[in-house]
């Protein structure tokens, strides 16, 4: 557990592409996965995080430091999260939701999945298939029938300008 007095404990995290990061233990234990390792006493050396790459881990650590610097004020935390996620593209958000799930950080998980929903709300079916890597397994007739049934939901869809 954290030292009772004196200098704050620092942990070293290692991404799956071998980048090393230093982070204050008090910020890192926002991740339940890391907290459990610390509590089990296996955080002495370097903590390997096999499912997170360096770019994503850097981003997650920025978030950990930012959110733990804010005192217990849910309004301020929420506006920090909104600002933190505002300029992230879909690919980055997808990597972050996977990392948040692996690191067991429910507040980040909730915020990122809500952000992805917000990004995709007005997008076309084609956009969703490309971004999520989903194969269209409908026959042309079946697809036309599903679309016809919910015709009105295709009003006001954004045109795809991302490719």
């Amino acid at each position: 557990m954290a030292a009772e007095t004196g200098t704050p404990t620092t942990l070293t995290l290692k991404s799956n592409d071998d980048e090393l990061f230093s982070v204050a233990e008090s910020a890192a234990i926002l991740s339940v996965t890391i907290r459990n390792m610390v509590e089990d006493g296996c955080a002495g050396g370097v903590i390997p995080l096999d499912n997170v790459d360096g770019k994503t881990l850097a981003s997650v650590i920025t978030y950990m430091n930012g959110i733990s610097a804010i005192p217990a004020d849910e309004e301020k935390k929420k506006s920090y999260r909104d600002k933190f996620l505002s300029d992230k593209d879909f690919e980055t958000l997808a990597d972050m939701v996977l990392a948040a799930n692996y690191l067991n950080m429910s507040c980040l998980m909730d915020a990122v999945s809500a952000k992805i929903a917000q990004v995709m709300e007005k997008k076309s079916v084609g956009w969703v298939r490309r971004k999520f890597g989903i194969e269209n397994d409908y026959t042309p007739e079946e697809e036309a029938a599903v679309k016809e049934e919910h015709k009105w939901t295709f009003e006001g869809v954004e045109t795809d300008d991302d490719n």
Partner: peptide
């Protein structure tokens, strides 16, 4: 977390 209108449209994404 999506609104109903988006959900009904995304039924066309795939069978699953």
């Amino acid at each position: 977390q999506l609104p109903v209108k988006s959900l009904l449209r995304f039924k066309s994404v795939s069978k699953s």
